[in-house]
């Protein structure tokens, strides 16, 4: 009996050891760039590693005082929130239609929406550039919103659709015999029932949008439309050389809100990421 207990506690210890090592492996880069962001430039590139660097807020002051970081942050937030709103407004009815109605070509339309995620973004980069130039939207947050929304539309649609498929058809039938229209059913029954799925889809879209670089670089040519991801690139050129501590700190600032949100909804997120794995 005692040996069984000991082997159980040993197995538990090994599990925690492996998980701890994995957590350290994942978090080490984050801690590392936080440490770089909070040390003076002179202690970043050195012949010998510095294990206990001097604490310095040089980079912090620099990014807020010498650079329009608040503007970049605002641009990021507006473009991302706007894109997520566009995604949800369009994807929820689309997902409802794909999951509930029978019509010719439904599966083809579903696949077409998904297939937009399959091509390499660079393929459409030049057409998109000309499209926005002709529309007069280059270097605006509106263009970023539209691009992010377009990129994430397929993912959001499919995540929401997978949650909708889990809603028993009986609920809709009940609402219909109770006198509700399709729009009422969607608004009052379906959306509240799949709220965790909608939040998951929104967060995934948000993460993809924060990390988007190629199209942002293409569309934004002045600080008016720069986002955090493009702002990082600003610290790599010019007479000051590569400003590693500023890059690290901006990267950390961009990372924290996403990290907090992901931790808060991780239970739903894992389901969203495996959507389609069990039920298609």
């Amino acid at each position: 009996m005692a040996s069984v207990r000991r082997s159980r506690s040993e197995s538990l210890f090994i599990r925690y050891l492996v998980l701890g090592a994995w957590a350290l492996f994942c978090l080490a880069p984050v801690l590392w760039f936080l440490s770089i962001g909070l040390r003076p430039r002179t202690e970043i590139i050195t012949p010998q590693p510095i294990y206990f660097p001097t604490f310095s807020l040089d980079a912090w002051h620099m990014i807020w005082e010498d650079w329009p970081m608040a503007k970049y942050l605002r641009n990021s937030v507006l473009a991302i929130i706007g894109s997520v709103v566009i995604d949800l407004v369009l994807a929820i009815p689309a997902a409802y239609s794909l999951s509930r109605y029978e019509y010719r070509g439904r599966d083809d339309i579903g696949f077409y929406i998904l297939s937009t995620r399959m091509m390499a973004p660079a393929i459409v980069a030049i057409p998109i550039f000309f499209l926005f130039r002709n529309m007069g939207l280059l270097d605006t947050i509106w263009a970023l919103m539209l691009v992010y929304a377009a990129i994430n539309m397929s993912v959001v649609t499919w995540i929401v659709r997978s949650y909708m498929l889990d809603i028993p058809k009986e609920l809709e039938d009940a609402a219909r015999t109770d006198g509700a229209s399709d729009l009422r059913i969607l608004w009052e029954i379906i959306i509240p029932a799949i709220l965790p799925g909608i939040i998951t889809a929104a967060v995934i879209a948000m993460i993809f949008a924060i990390n988007e670089f190629l199209f942002t670089l293409l569309i934004a040519s002045t600080p008016d439309a720069y986002t955090m991801s493009v702002a990082l690139a600003n610290f790599t050129g010019g007479s000051d050389g590569v400003i590693y501590n500023a890059i690290a700190l901006v990267a950390f600032i961009a990372f924290v809100p996403v990290f907090v949100v992901v931790v808060a909804i991780q239970k739903h997120l894992s389901r969203g990421l495996t959507m389609g794995a069990i039920k298609g």
Binding site: D173, R176, P192, A193
Partner: peptide, 18 residues
Amino acid sequence: ARDRDVAMVFQGYALYPN
């Protein structure tokens, strides 16, 4: 269905969970 004056009770209750 919404214009027919019928009320339905379902096997799985179909109560609105929210």
